[in-house]
Structures are given as C-alpha cells and as structure tokens.
Computed example of a mutant assay.
Amino acid sequence: MSNLDKASQDAIDAAANSEQVALILAVLQAQQLAQQPVTPPAPAPAPQPSGSAAKWLAIGAGGSALLLAVAVSAIAVAISAVALTVCLLVLRSVWQDIRKD
C-alpha cells in the first residue's frame, strides 16, 4: 500500500469518524434540552425615561397656565358674590322703604 492510498484511507476514516462525532453531539444536545426545565421568557426591559429639560419646561408652563386660569376664575366668582350681595342689600332696603309708606 502506497502512502497515497494510506492517506486517502485515513481521510475516509476521518470523515466517517466526524459524522459519528456529529451524530453523538446532536444526541447529547437533545438530551440536555429535554432535561432542562422550561422557563418563561424574560420580560422586556422597560424603556428608560428621557430627562430632557424641554419636557419639564413644557410641564411647568402648562401647569402655570392652568393655575392662573383657576385663580382668575376664583376671582370672578368672588366678584360675582359681592355684587349679588350688594344688589340684595339694596333691594331689601328699597322694599323696606316701600312697606313703610
């Protein structure tokens, strides 16, 4: 047997051994997967909040405008209450003057 024949026979044997090793590894991986407990998938990470200054400035401006509107409305209600009270006092005085006569 020449060196070339011996080398080709060794190559054929190596290829057969590689196929056997690959088959054994596949069987071992299948056994390991079968033995592992099933775990639920990890939850997706929550998005990180952006701390931009523009967002906080917009929130501050919106909140200020809202509070200013509430304050003006409260002043309008107070002025209306005072005007109604003065009107009722004047009408009561006029009614009492009419009843005296």
Results as ranks from 00 to 15, higher is better:
Asn17Tyr: 03
Ile75Asn: 07
Ala7Leu: 10
Ser18Pro: 00
Val90Phe: 03
Val21Pro: 01
Ala76Met: 10
Ala15Trp: 01
Ser73Met: 09
Leu28Asp: 11
Ala14Arg: 08
Trp95Cys: 09
Gly63Val: 05
Ala22Gly: 13
Leu88Cys: 03
Ala71Met: 13
Ser50Ala: 14
Ile12Thr: 14
Asp5Ser: 11
Asp10Ala: 12
Pro37Asp: 07
Ser8Asp: 07
Ile24Asn: 09
Ala58Pro: 03
Ala7Arg: 08
Val77Phe: 02
Arg92Pro: 04
Ala34Asn: 03
Val82Lys: 04
Leu68Trp: 02
Trp56Leu: 11
Pro41Gly: 00
Gln9Val: 12
Arg99Phe: 07
Gln20Val: 05
Pro45Thr: 05
Leu89Thr: 04
Gly62Ile: 05
Gly60Asp: 08
Leu57Ile: 15
Ile75Gly: 05
Ala78Lys: 14
Ile75Ala: 15
Val90Gln: 06
Ala7Phe: 05
Ala11Met: 07
Ile12Met: 10
Ala53Trp: 13
Leu57Lys: 15
Gly62Tyr: 01
Val86Thr: 08
Ser64Phe: 15
Leu67Asn: 02
Gln31Arg: 11
Leu88His: 01
Leu88Lys: 11
Gln32Ile: 11
Lys100Gln: 10
Ala14Leu: 11
Asn3Met: 08
Ser73His: 09
Ala16Pro: 01
Asn17Asp: 12
Ala58Ser: 12
Asn3Cys: 08
Leu84Ile: 01
Gln9Ala: 14
Ala53Asn: 15
Leu23Val: 08
Ser2Phe: 01
Ile59His: 06
Ala69Arg: 05
Leu88Arg: 06
Ala11Cys: 00
Trp56Tyr: 14
Pro43Met: 08
Ile75His: 13
Ala76Val: 05
Gln35Asn: 04
Met1Trp: 02
Val27Asn: 12
